[in-house]
Design a protein around this nucleic acid. Structure first.
Length: 493
RNA sequence: GGCGGCAUAGCCAAGUGGUUAAGGCAGCGGUCUGCAAAACCGUUAUUCAUCGGUUCGAAUCCGAUUGCCGCCUCCA
C-alpha cells in the first residue's frame, strides 16, 4: 500500500516515495501577515493539515514548515498608515492567524519561520546567484535574469516566449528582461531596510522561501505546497532561485489546493465578499467548516455559501448523533473484557467486520491522492451500519453488544481524527451548537429551558395536550425537542 | 492574446474503460414513538453538458461545439 498523489510539476498522479525512508519533509507557503485570515487561507491550512495528519497516521516522521511573510509592500503601507513598525503589524496578524488556526484544529507546523529572521541567508543566496551569473544589480536593486535559467516556466507550463506574448507584463526601465524579478530591493524613504552588499534594502518576495526551505529541510525536500495561485510566479521563481543556486531539484512533489469562491464569485475586497475565518466561526463549529471543505477534493474549487455550510452542519450532526448514541449505550455497559471476535455471534461478528473494514477503506481512499470525499463517504457508511445495529439491539445491551459498539466508536473516532474532526465530546458539540444557533436567531436559552421544564411537569401528569402546545410553540422557533428515557433534550433545526 | 481546469440527481459530491453510477443534504412512503425527534428500511440519475468518433464494451479515451472558472499583476 502506497500513497499516490498528483504532482503539479509532472501533471500526473505518482507514487509517493520520500527521499528518506520513513521521513517526509513538507514546505507550505503561509500568509503575508497584513490582514486577518479568510476562508481561502483556512482551506489551504485544512488541506495541508489533513495531508500531514494522514502521513503521520501512516507512521511517517513529518517535518512540516509553514512560513510567515513579515516584510512586504502591503505590510509597509499598513505600518505607515498606522504610524507603527512593520513588526507591530506582522506580529498582530501572526497572533490572529495562530488563534484562528488553533480553533480550526490545525496542528501547528514543526517550524513557522518568519522572513525577517533569515535576511542573512537571503543575502548569502543572492551572492551565490551572482556568482553563477543568474543575478545582476542596478541602482541597489538586484534582479534574477530568468533567461539564464533553462528550466524557467517548467512548473507553470509556459515558456518565456508565451509569457512575453502576454500583454500584461509590467515593463520596467531598469530590468534587462521584463520577466526578471526582484531578489533585493533598494529601500526608499520610510521603508524598513537591512544592510547588504548592494546598499540598504529589503528582500524581494520569493527569496525567503528558497532560503527558509533549504535551512529547515535541505536543498531537496519531498513536498512543496500552497494555494494554486502560487504556481506562478511565486513557485516558478523559487525554483529558479533554489535550483539555479544548487543545481538540484527544490522539491519532488508539488501539491496545490484549489480556490474558495463565495456564492460563485472569487473572493476579493473590491467585491466586498471577503469572508474571514472569524466570521465563519461565529456561525459554525470549526469542524463543520472542515467537513464542508473536505467533502470536496482538495484540488477542486469549492464554492462557499451559507447553504453549503448549513448542509455540512447537518452532516456533522449525523456523526455526533451516532457517537452520542454509542456513548449512551456504553455508559450502561457491562464488562466486555472477556469478549473476543471469535466468541461473537454471526450478527455481531458481521457488524464488527464491517466496522473493522472502515480503516482499510479509509486508507484506500486517502492513499488515492488524499481523496477525503470518498473517505468521508466510508465513515458515513460505517455510521449507518452501527446505527442499524443499535436499532436492532435497542433494549438488549449485552457484553457482546458493548464489545461491538466500543470497537465501532473507536474506528469512527480514529478515522475522523485523521481528518481533524470528532475532537469534541458529543455532549459538548451539541451544547455549543445550541448556544451558537440560539445566538444567531436571538433566542434565549434560559427561556427555552424553562419551557422544557414546564413541559416536563405536564408530561408527568400525562397532559399530552398541554405538552404538545409547548412543543409546537418551540417548534415555531425552529426548536426541536427529543424526549428520551433520561429526559428531554433539544436542538435548533 | 497565451496557459490550464471544470461540466455527474433538486443541491453538494465521489467515480476516469467492464457486475446494481459511492456518500451527504433536501424530498417522498413505511417502521418506531402518547405526539414528535433521532434512527432504521424502501424510494428519488436506463444515465453522466451537446454532437460525433475509437472500442466487444465509455460518465471514463479522442475530436468538435456550448457554458463556467482559474492563472498570466499582489493573492491561499
Amino acid at each position: 500500500m502506497s500513497i499516490r498523489l498528483y504532482n503539479a510539476l509532472t501533471k500526473q498522479k505518482e507514487t509517493f516515495r520520500p527521499l528518506i525512508e520513513g521521513k517526509v519533509r513538507i514546505y507550505v507557503c503561509g500568509i503575508t501577515a497584513y490582514d486577518v485570515c479568510h476562508i481561502g487561507h483556512a482551506r489551504s491550512a485544512v488541506v495541508f493539515d489533513v495531508i500531514t495528519r494522514y502521513l503521520r497516521y501512516q507512521c511517517y516522521d513529518v517535518t512540516y514548515v509553514k512560513n510567515f511573510t513579515d516584510v512586504d509592500d502591503k505590510i509597509i503601507v499598513k505600518a505607515n498608515a498606522e504610524r507603527g513598525t512593520i513588526f507591530e503589524i506582522s506580529e498582530r496578524y501572526i497572533r490572529e492567524h495562530d488563534e484562528d488556526m488553533d480553533i480550526l484544529r490545525i496542528a501547528r507546523p514543526t517550524y513557522a519561520p518568519k522572513a525577517t529572521e533569515h535576511i542573512d541567508g537571503m543575502i548569502h543566496l543572492i551572492k551565490v546567484l551572482f556568482n553563477r551569473g543568474l543575478a545582476y544589480e542596478i541602482e541597489g536593486d538586484v534582479y534574477y535574469a530568468v533567461e539564464k535559467f533553462p528550466g524557467y516556466g517548467k512548473l507553470s507550463g509556459r515558456t518565456l516566449e508565451d509569457m512575453m506574448a502576454g500583454a500584461r507584463v509590467d515593463v520596467s526601465e531598469k530590468k534587462k528582461n521584463p520577466l526578471d524579478f526582484a531578489l533585493w530591493k533598494a529601500s526608499k524613504e520610510g521603508e524598513p531596510w537591512w544592510e547588504s552588499p548592494w546598499g540598504r534594502g529589503r528582500p524581494g518576495w520569493h527569496i525567503e522561501c528558497s532560503v527558509m526551505s533549504q535551512h529547515f529541510l535541505g536543498e531537496t525536500f519531498d513536498i512543496h505546497g500552497g494555494g494554486e495561485d502560487l504556481i506562478f510566479p511565486h513557485h516558478e521563481n523559487e525554483i529558479a532561485q533554489s535550483e539555479g543556486a544548487t543545481g538540484k531539484p527544490l522539491a519532488n512533489y508539488w501539491v496545490y489546493n484549489g480556490f474558495v469562491t463565495v456564492n460563485g464569485e472569487k473572493m476579493s475586497k473590491s467585491l466586498g465578499n471577503f469572508v474571514t475565518v472569524k466570521d465563519i466561526l461565529k456561525n459554525y463549529h470549526p469542524e463543520v467548516l472542515r467537513l464542508f471543505m473536505l467533502q470536496s477534493h482538495y484540488k477542486s474549487p469549492v464554492d462557499f455559501s451559507d447553504e453549503s455550510l448549513a448542509d455540512a452542519r447537518m452532516g456533522m450532526e449525523r456523526f455526533y448523533t451516532t457517537l452520542n448514541s454509542i456513548n449512551e449505550a456504553l455508559s450502561c455497559c457491562e464488562d466486555f473484557s472477556g469478549i473476543t471476535r471469535e466468541t461473537l455471534s454471526a450478527v455481531d461478528s458481521d457488524v464488527c467486520g464491517k466496522l473493522a473494514s472502515l480503516s482499510d477503506r479509509f486508507k484506500e481512499a486517502m492513499d488515492d491522492d488524499f481523496n477525503t470525499p470518498r473517505a468521508i463517504g466510508y465513515i458515513f457508511d460505517a455510521v449507518r451500519v452501527v446505527n442499524g445495529y443499535m436499532a436492532d439491539k435497542k433494549s438488549r445491551i449485552s457484553p457482546e453488544t458493548c464489545f461491538v459498539l466500543y470497537h465501532a466508536g473507536k474506528a469512527i473516532l480514529e478515522t475522523g481524527r485523521v481528518l481533524g474532526v470528532f475532537f469534541d465530546s458529543p455532549a459538548d458539540y451539541f451544547r455549543q451548537d445550541r448556544h451558537r444557533e440560539a445566538g444567531k436567531r436571538g433566542l434565549d436559552v434560559k427561556e427555552i429551558e424553562r419551557m422544557i421544564e414546564e413541559r416536563r411537569a405536564t408530561r408527568l401528569a400525562k397532559d399530552w395536550k398541554k405538552a404538545d402546545e409547548i412543543r409546537h410553540a418551540l417548534a415555531e422557533k425552529k426548536i426541536i425537542l427529543k424526549d428520551g428515557p433520561a429526559g428531554t433534550t433539544w436542538k435548533i433545526e
